[in-house]
Computed example of a mutant assay.
Amino acid sequence: MIVFSILAIIVVLIIGVILFTGVRIIPQNMVGMVSVLSKYQKQIEPGLHVVVPVITHVDRVDLAQVPIRLSEQSVISQDNAEVIISLSLNYHVTNPYKFTFENADSVKSMIQQSRAHLRGIIGTMDLNDVLNGTERINAALSRELGSITDAYGVNVDRINIDTIQPTPEIQESMNKQINATREREAAIARAQGEARSIELTTKAKNDALVATAEADAKAVRLAADAEAYRIQKANEILSQVDGNYLAAQNIDAFRDVAKSPANTVIVPNTAIDALGDLKVAGALLGTNKVDQPVKPLSD
């Protein structure tokens, strides 16, 4: 009896294990690919399913989006510059059958294709375009991968270049070029500043010279106007003086001349005639010395 009981328990356990292996639970966002005796039979949706135990195998396929970060990759640009690029992408399974049965490793194949296309794209670009063209590279990779990943039963939802780092040798060369460019731009800026300073200084000097010349010209004009005004007023005064006053002025002038050490004084006839018109002329001329006769100047 004891042996029979033990055998019964063993049988029950075996049956229980067999039955348990026939139960499959498919979580949400997954599907089950059912194979019987290694041959695909059907696809089951999320939930509890009972299958034939032992001979049935169920592969779970995750339909949710999966992120992958690829390891760094060394690529060569069109101008033979080496850069290190790190890449990440997001994908999801679109065809569980292709993903499971038509490719041994769809994810690995997708990664290899991503690396190959990245090398091809970078190889057509110069280093400057590579460093400044991440969006362009991302778009080109998405187009290339979109045309081939359908064969793997997946779709690349997003691909992104995380870093693009030139090799130390290339970086050193770039730094030298950047420094040379900065020095050249600084020299140009200094030269332009000096030229501007000279231009402003020259303009200031020219403006000062023009202002000085205009001031001098104005002063000359004012002096000329003053002299003209003086002459005009003198002429106006002289026009109002009678002839006797002018004759008297002449007598005073002749008298001063007569007092000089000269032995002879020459007087025009017109002056003598004018002197004769004055009643006081004789008295005035009587002051001259006898040895200094006044001789009329003949015409």
Rank of each mutant, 00 (worst) to 15 (best):
V3K: 11
A8Q: 05
G16F: 14
L19A: 11
T21N: 11
R24F: 00
S38T: 10
S38H: 06
Q43M: 10
I44E: 12
V51S: 01
V52T: 14
V52G: 02
T56M: 01
H57Y: 13
H57D: 13
E72V: 14
L87Q: 03
S88F: 00
L89C: 01
N90S: 04
V93Y: 00
K108R: 12
Q112Y: 13
G123K: 04
T124H: 09
M125Q: 12
L127R: 06
V130A: 01
R136I: 14
N138T: 06
L141P: 10
L141Q: 01
E144K: 10
T149R: 02
Y152P: 03
D162E: 15
T163L: 11
P166C: 06
E172D: 15
R184K: 14
A187F: 07
A189W: 07
Q192E: 13
E194T: 13
R196N: 09
I198K: 09
K203A: 15
K205P: 02
D207N: 15
A215C: 05
A226F: 07
E227M: 10
A228R: 03
A234D: 08
A234H: 04
G243A: 14
A247H: 08
A247Y: 07
A248V: 10
Q249K: 12
Q249G: 13
N250Q: 14
F254T: 06
A258R: 05
K259I: 03
S260T: 15
N263V: 02
P268C: 05
T270W: 02
A274C: 05
D277G: 09
K279W: 08
V280F: 09
G286P: 03
L297M: 15
